[in-house]
Deep mutational scan, measured.
Amino acid sequence: MDTYKLILNGKTLKGETTTEAVDAATAEKVFKHAANEHGVHGHWTYDPETKTFTVTE
């Protein structure tokens, strides 16, 4: 398992979190669910070198 990071750049919610996942696709599902639960919808990017997802509203 690897550690993946999410950076939230929402209009009303900003922050960072991490998750352990077997691959980037699994981490993305976890992060998108969490972002949706917090009402953050926007443009997603992924940097494979740093294993970091970013969502920007």
Rank of each mutant, 00 (worst) to 15 (best):
M1R: 10
D2K: 13
D2W: 12
T3W: 09
T3V: 12
T3A: 05
T3Q: 08
Y4K: 02
Y4G: 02
Y4E: 02
Y4H: 02
K5L: 07
K5Q: 05
K5S: 05
K5R: 13
K5H: 10
K5P: 01
K5A: 04
L6W: 04
I7N: 04
I7S: 03
I7K: 05
L8W: 14
L8P: 01
L8E: 03
L8F: 13
L8H: 03
G10S: 08
G10M: 14
G10K: 04
G10L: 15
G10V: 08
K11D: 08
K11Y: 11
K11C: 15
K11F: 14
T12E: 10
T12I: 11
T12S: 11
T12Q: 10
T12R: 08
L13T: 11
L13I: 14
L13E: 07
L13G: 07
L13P: 04
K14Y: 14
G15S: 13
G15E: 10
G15W: 15
E16R: 07
T17N: 06
T18I: 09
T19I: 15
T19R: 04
A21W: 01
A21R: 02
A21L: 02
V22I: 13
D23W: 03
D23I: 02
D23T: 05
D23R: 03
D23P: 00
D23G: 03
A24E: 07
A24H: 09
A24V: 11
A24K: 12
A24P: 09
A24R: 11
A24Y: 12
A25V: 10
A25S: 09
A25Y: 10
A25C: 13
A25F: 10
A25N: 08
A25K: 10
A25I: 10
T26A: 14
T26H: 13
T26Y: 08
T26M: 11
A27L: 01
A27H: 00
A27V: 02
E28Q: 09
E28K: 09
E28D: 04
E28L: 15
K29G: 08
K29A: 13
K29C: 10
K29S: 09
V30A: 10
V30Q: 09
V30K: 08
F31G: 00
F31Q: 00
F31K: 00
K32N: 05
K32S: 05
K32I: 10
K32Y: 06
H33I: 14
A34Q: 13
A34F: 15
A34I: 15
A34M: 15
A35L: 14
A35R: 02
A35E: 02
A35D: 01
N36F: 13
N36S: 13
N36E: 14
N36C: 12
E37F: 12
E37N: 10
E37M: 14
E37V: 13
H38Y: 15
H38N: 10
G39I: 07
G39Y: 05
G39L: 05
G39Q: 06
V40S: 03
H41V: 14
H41W: 12
H41D: 11
H41G: 07
G42Y: 04
G42Q: 03
G42D: 01
H43Q: 13
H43Y: 13
H43A: 12
W44I: 03
W44P: 00
W44E: 00
W44L: 03
T45L: 07
T45N: 09
Y46P: 00
D47T: 06
P48V: 08
P48A: 12
P48R: 07
E49G: 11
E49L: 13
E49A: 13
E49W: 11
E49I: 11
T50N: 09
T50M: 06
T50G: 05
K51C: 04
K51D: 00
K51Y: 07
K51G: 03
F53K: 00
F53L: 01
T54W: 07
T54P: 00
T54F: 06
T54Y: 08
V55W: 03
V55A: 03
V55R: 01
V55I: 08
V55H: 01
T56R: 05
T56Y: 08
T56A: 05
T56M: 06
E57H: 05
E57I: 07
